[in-house]
C-alpha cells in the first residue's frame, strides 16, 4: 500500500520516519554501518600484505621498487583534491548553491576519471613487462625473489578493489549530479549528496594507506 510522503515544514520524508531529520540521521547511520563493513572488507588484504611482507621482506622491497612512486603520488594528490571538491559540493548543497554543487560534482567526477587514467597507464605498463598476478606472472627480472609475484597479486587485489570502489563512486555521483541539475537538492534536503560524500572520503581514506605501503615503504 502506497503511503504519501509526510511533510515536516516544507520538507518531505518517508512516512515511517518521525521527521525529516530522523530520516536524514537514519540514512547517515546506514552509511556509517556500511563504511564499518567496508573497513572490514579491505582489512584482510592489509593483513595478507603484512603477513607476506613479514615472511619475505627482501622480496617485498625488491618488488615495490618496480612501482613508480610518482604515479602513486600523483594519484594521491588527485584523490585529495577530489575530496576537497566533494566537500565543497556538499557545502554547495547545504547552502542551496546549485551552481557550486553542480560544478564541484563535475570536478570530482573529472578527478575520479583522472585517477583511473593514471591507474590505467600503470597497469598497462606492468602488463607489458609481464607483471601479472602470481599465476600469470612472467616477468624475469626478479628471479632471485620468488615471492615478488605474491607482492603483485596483493598489489592488484588491493588497487583493483579500490579501483572498483572509485568506479562505484562515479556511478553514484552521476546519479547525484543528474538530480542536482534538476534542482532536487537544497538546504532542506541534500541527503544523497552528503552520503555520497561520506563514501567518497572513505575511498580517499583507503588510498591514503595504499599509497605509502605499496609505493614508498615496500
Amino acid at each position: 500500500m502506497a503511503h504519501a510522503p509526510a511533510m515536516d515544514g516544507n520538507r518531505q520524508y518517508a512516512h515511517h520516519f518521525l521527521s525529516a531529520d530522523h530520516e536524514f540521521e537514519t540514512s547517515k547511520q546506514g552509511i556509517w554501518l556500511f563504511l564499518l563493513q567496508e573497513v572490514l572488507f579491505f582489512s584482510p588484504l592489509f593483513v595478507a600484505y603484512y603477513v607476506f611482507r613479514g615472511l619475505h621482506p627482501a622480496d617485498w622491497h625488491a618488488a615495490a621498487q618496480l612501482l613508480d612512486w610518482r604515479m602513486g603520488a600523483l594519484n594521491t594528490v588527485i584523490l585529495i583534491c577530489s575530496s576537497l571538491t566533494m566537500a565543497l559540493a556538499v557545502h554547495g548543497a547545504q547552502t542551496s548553491n546549485k551552481k557550486k554543487l553542480v560544478v564541484n560534482l563535475i570536478l570530482t567526477l573529472g578527478l575520479a576519471c583522472g585517477f583511473l587514467v593514471v591507474k590505467y597507464f600503470e597497469y598497462t605498463h606492468k602488463f607489458h613487462m609481464g607483471i601479472y598476478p602470481a599465476g600469470a606472472f612472467t616477468y624475469e627480472g626478479l628471479g632471485q625473489y620468488p615471492a615478488a609475484k605474491l607482492y603483485f597479486s596483493i598489489y592488484y587485489a588491493m588497487t583493483g578493489l579500490h579501483g572498483i570502489h572509485v568506479l562505484g563512486g562515479m556511478a553514484v555521483m552521476l546519479w547525484v549530479l543528474k538530480r542536482a541539475m534538476r534542482g532536487e537538492f537544497n538546504a532542506h534536503y541534500y541527503t544523497p549528496v552528503e552520503m555520497t560524500g561520506l563514501y567518497w572520503h572513505f575511498v580517499d581514506l583507503v588510498w591514503i594507506y595504499l599509497f605509502p605501503i605499496l609505493y614508498l615503504l615496500g
Binding site: S83, M86, A87, G197, L198, H201, D204, L205
Partner: peptide, 8 residues
C-alpha cells in the same frame, strides 16, 4: 583529518 572533518 579526513574522518574528523571531511567525514564530519
Amino acid at each position: 583529518l579526513v574522518v574528523t572533518f571531511f567525514m564530519g
